[in-house]
Amino acid sequence: MRTQRMEETRMKRWRVIALVCTILACATLMLAGCNSESYSPAAKDQTVTDSALGKSGTLRVGVNTSAAPLAGQTQSDSRIVGIDVDVAAYMADQMGLKVDVVDVGNNPESALSDGQVDVVLGVLVSDAEDADFWKSEPYLATGVALFGTAAESAVPTTDSNPKIAAQASSKSSWQVTTLFGDGSLVQQDDPKATFAALNSGAARYAASDAIVGTYAAKTSEYDDKIVALLQDPTGYCAAVSKSNTELQSAVASAVNELANKGVMDIIESKWLGAPLDLDKITVIKAGSSESTSESSSAASESAASAEAAASGEAAAPAEGEQAAEQAAPAE
């Protein structure tokens, strides 16, 4: 009996792996432009009625191609690729639908209200608290992270005045000045330059969105790692129109399966090298004068609320793009 159970477990594992590999293979054959071609998944019963979709038999998914590795366009043929493209392919497959991936920039609310897409991915939970659309549970954890080189293990205190590279006018640079002061910030033009500054010795640390930073370090072939978080973790979620309850239910189910079936771990490994477990990373709190080993999972709800109020996180500009000057907090 024990041998039989082991065999059944092994067969289930292989079926999941085969399913995910098929989905990710389909994602690589996605769109040759912003919103034109679509792939055809294996025949599966459609579980969402056409009345819940803007295009019969097709899930139209919005992404932001300026937010790699969530989404971006290849230089050779402008195909849209990235974490969110793979997530979109999986969601559509679970619903028995084809998928169209559309670049909607960083305005999910407008894309949904205008009927441009059915779902928008890559929506940061902390930036959409008052948005007029339905949000799923996060499918990908993130947060402003502090990176160090492979040899760096020390977590800086807020009064130690460390030099920290970060993209100018980004949420990360704002978080650095909030916690460590203006003198600690070493401004850079983009994530790539941020990690170049870290590895050249121009800064001891680099601050970036955990997902964006991990990808930037990986693609630059730097052996950098997250040493701390500068805020409690948040996450990326899916957005659907408030009135489309049928699609909300289907998206919620797909997001749940992404985690429960291990699909998200495989997608993260593909783009980041390995899944990120941010719950075990030290969170640097405002006013900390000594290193703390407090993990984000152990932080109390009241402490998280106090940090959000103190940092004004909702007013901070988005990571991975140049923020409008009027949106950035005063320094």
Rank of each mutant, 00 (worst) to 15 (best):
E129S: 13
S153D: 06
K225Y: 07
V212K: 09
E257K: 14
G262F: 00
A141H: 06
Q116G: 03
G82S: 09
Y205A: 12
P233C: 02
K192V: 06
G287I: 02
A315V: 12
S66C: 11
C237R: 15
L19K: 09
E290L: 01
Y236D: 08
D265K: 11
Y139A: 03
V255C: 00
M1S: 12
V119F: 05
M30Q: 13
D223V: 04
D130K: 13
S269W: 01
A328P: 03
V81Y: 11
S302A: 13
A299Y: 03
L185K: 06
T292L: 11
A318L: 09
A166N: 07
T28E: 15
G62Y: 05
S302F: 01
Q167G: 03
S169Q: 11
N260R: 08
A193F: 04
G105V: 02
S160R: 08
A308M: 13
A150K: 14
L272R: 04
A203R: 03
T49Y: 00
Q175C: 00
A328T: 14
A67H: 11
L24G: 08
K280T: 14
S297E: 08
L140G: 06
R2H: 12
D224R: 01
G62P: 05
S296F: 09
P191W: 00
I23Y: 12
L29N: 15
V99Q: 08
T234Q: 06
Q73I: 03
E137T: 15
T214E: 06
